[in-house]
Design a protein around this nucleic acid. Structure first.
Length: 278
DNA sequence: CCTCTATGGCGAA
DNA sequence: TCGCCCTAGAGGC
């Protein structure tokens, strides 16, 4: 369940449960065993997120870098944790016995110990994170404005707007009535300013609620207001994973195609305002 | 039971 | 552009 808002929530959760506390680390699955042994008994100095990357800092230049990828998950427990089941990469617990708090990491694309130089390298590949206070949307704009790639592809590019994933991508394009295949270089600066501000708002709301809700009832026609639109991820969306269903605003069937290995969803009527495609 | 899917990203060709 | 890596839950038979 990993778009940027999820990762920022995870960082907050790790901090709430483990910051400043002596911890135990293990890797029941074995693939993080040597590293877990090194971390065992250490105090978590702090967890933080940038885009979809999560960092757990244990001091002494020992930081766990986690990227959940498509399949990764973190589950938290209060009180005695369940016996490890399945492929449990990293279990972090408080050092009391039985542990008061547990965080179980499964299925990540990346779970590795990194030093400051490696952290710099990772951050160096990322654009401005809409969820970070100091982020400047104009940095993303400079890449978008000169690119011939489709805006739908650019939004998924972590060098442009890290933390944005397939849901925010589809919903942002819908909310701004943009044809997904339109080349980035055709986007207007004013349009991007509005998109960036919207993204910052939407993602902060995502951090607060743990969901991606993009539908605003006041934008819906009366008749469409009560159609079911809650996706499995728990949020209310206009087009994401709604292929073949009627657009909430105009009733046209939502379309889907594959773009760079990912499913893209859009309403060809609402998002085709006669702009040149490429 | 089996098959499909998923909010991601890498590296080879 | 392709294949591949990571895992669990949903749905079909």
């Amino acid at each position: 369940m990993p778009e940027g808002h999820t990762i920022h929530r995870l960082a907050a959760e790790y901090n709430a449960r483990f910051r400043g506390v002596v911890t135990r680390s293990s890797s029941p699955q074995g693939r993080f065993a040597a590293e877990a042994a090194q971390l065992d008994g250490r105090v978590l100095a702090g967890a933080w997120a940038y885009g979809k990357h999560l960092f757990c800092d244990f001091g002494d230049n020992l930081t766990v870098h986690i990227h959940l990828g498509l399949l990764g998950k973190v589950g938290f427990f209060s009180g005695p944790p369940p016996a490890p089941v399945g492929a449990l990469r990293w279990r972090l617990t408080t050092a009391d016995d039985p542990p008061q708090c547990t965080a179980d990491l499964r299925g990540p694309t990346a779970c590795e110990l990194v030093d400051p130089a490696q952290i710099d390298r990772i951050l160096g590949q990322l654009g401005p994170d809409p969820l970070r206070e100091d982020s400047d949307g104009d940095l993303a704009w400079h890449r978008i404005r000169k690119s011939r790639r489709p805006i739908a592809a650019l939004l998924m590019d972590q060098q442009i707007a890290p933390g944005v994933g397939n849901i925010y991508r589809a919903e942002l394009l819908y909310r701004h009535r943009l044809e997904p295949m339109m080349a980035g270089q055709l986007l207007k600066y004013r349009e991007w300013q509005a998109m960036w501000a919207d993204l910052v708002d939407l993602m902060h709301e995502g951090v607060r609620t743990g969901r991606i809700d993009t539908v605003r009832a006041e934008h819906l026609p009366e008749a469409m207001g009560r159609l079911p639109r809650v996706d499995r991820h728990g949020g209310e969306v206009y087009v994401y994973r709604r292929a073949g269903m009627p657009c909430l605003v105009c009733g046209t069937k939502v379309r889907t195609t594959e773009l760079e290995h990912r499913n893209l969803f859009w309403c060809n009527k609402c998002q085709n305002i006669g702009r040149r495609r490429r």
